[in-house]
């Protein structure tokens, strides 16, 4: 296991009148080399969880293990962990702090004191991996970039650390459908080509069901469901009650349940939905099924 989270509690703004308990006994495990999606409504504690994984917040109770070692126990070096596991925040503005693209992306390699040639190569590779031509963007001011470009620069800055895992906080929030597809494709590519472990959070299962190997559903600081996307989708009704957006196919399947209550709802593709429907249709040929919109 890359990360193990054991019964972690965390209170934001502890000791002030604004204290909120963001994590309340959260336990989960994140395996190596896979894509783990943490899904939950807003305020569920997803961002807080990612920050505790990196030791940026120290749990009030419970422990976080990285490769089996407690990250807050003496021999373990948290700074070292942060160079091995990168994080891409929800808003790129939260992440970028240098003036130009080149300076920001090269910040990590410079921190690691890599030789200039190697640092340059890393910056170039990272920028090109996210689809930003090196020569064109190297000297651009970050303030002159569009939102989507800033997000790519943020990812490039993390890639330049050559991490073994990357945490993405709501990577698809605020993107148009095309940008969303491109980003998810990029994440998939990072897993396939670089063998990276990926953790991403989302308030919607629609984006991540097809991509994730494991889905963990977080609600009010606790894990309420976890498993393969299919096994999680099987509980579609409960997910709906938690305010989690479902994939279109699941929504259709749920709607059709008013006709066929025993219809499964854990399908991931249209083809699977069709196959499932064909199980029922022979019995229903006498009337056209009416699609109720749910």
């Amino acid at each position: 296991m890359l990360f193990e989270v054991k019964d972690v509690y965390y209170t934001r703004m502890r000791g002030t009148p604004f204290a909120v308990e963001a994590l309340k006994g959260c336990s989960l495990a994140i395996p190596e080399g896979e894509i783990t999606a943490i899904v939950g409504p807003t305020q569920a504690g997803k961002s807080t969880l990612l920050l505790t994984l990196l030791g940026l917040l120290r749990p009030t109770r419970g422990s976080v293990l990285f490769h089996g070692q407690d990250i807050h126990q003496a021999p373990f070096n948290v700074e070292d962990l942060r160079l091995r596991v990168g994080i891409v925040f929800q808003s790129p503005e939260a992440q970028l702090f240098e003036e130009t693209v080149g300076k920001d992306v090269s910040f990590g390699p410079r921190r690691k004191r890599l030789p200039p040639a190697q640092s340059r190569r890393l910056v170039q590779e990272s920028l090109e991996a996210v689809g930003l031509p090196y020569e064109e963007f190297r000297t651009r001011y970050i303030s002159s970039l569009s939102g989507g470009q800033k997000r790519r620069v943020a990812i490039a800055g993390v890639l330049a650390l050559e991490p073994e895992a990357i945490l993405f906080d709501e990577p698809t929030a605020g993107l148009d459908p095309q940008g969303r597809q491109e980003l998810l494709a990029l994440i998939q590519r990072l897993k396939m080509e670089r063998r990276l472990t990926i953790v991403l959070t989302s308030s919607s299962l629609a984006d991540v069901a097809a991509l994730a190997d494991q889905v963990i559903v977080l609600h009010e600081g606790r894990v309420v469901l976890s498993g393969s996307p299919r096994s999680v989708l099987a509980h579609a009704k409960e997910l709906l009650a938690l305010d989690i957006t479902l994939p279109e196919i699941t929504q259709i399947a749920l709607g059709l349940r008013s006709l066929w209550p025993s219809l499964r709802c854990d399908m991931l593709t249209l083809a699977e939905l069709e196959e499932e429907l064909l199980r029922f249709l022979p019995h229903a040929t006498s009337q056209e099924p009416q699609l109720s919109s749910s």
Binding site: E79, R82, L83, F89, A94, Q95, G108, R111, L161
Partner: peptide, 13 residues
Amino acid sequence: ERLSIAQATRGVR
């Protein structure tokens, strides 16, 4: 706060 988090994620202690 934002800047120190951003820099801490890239190895500044």
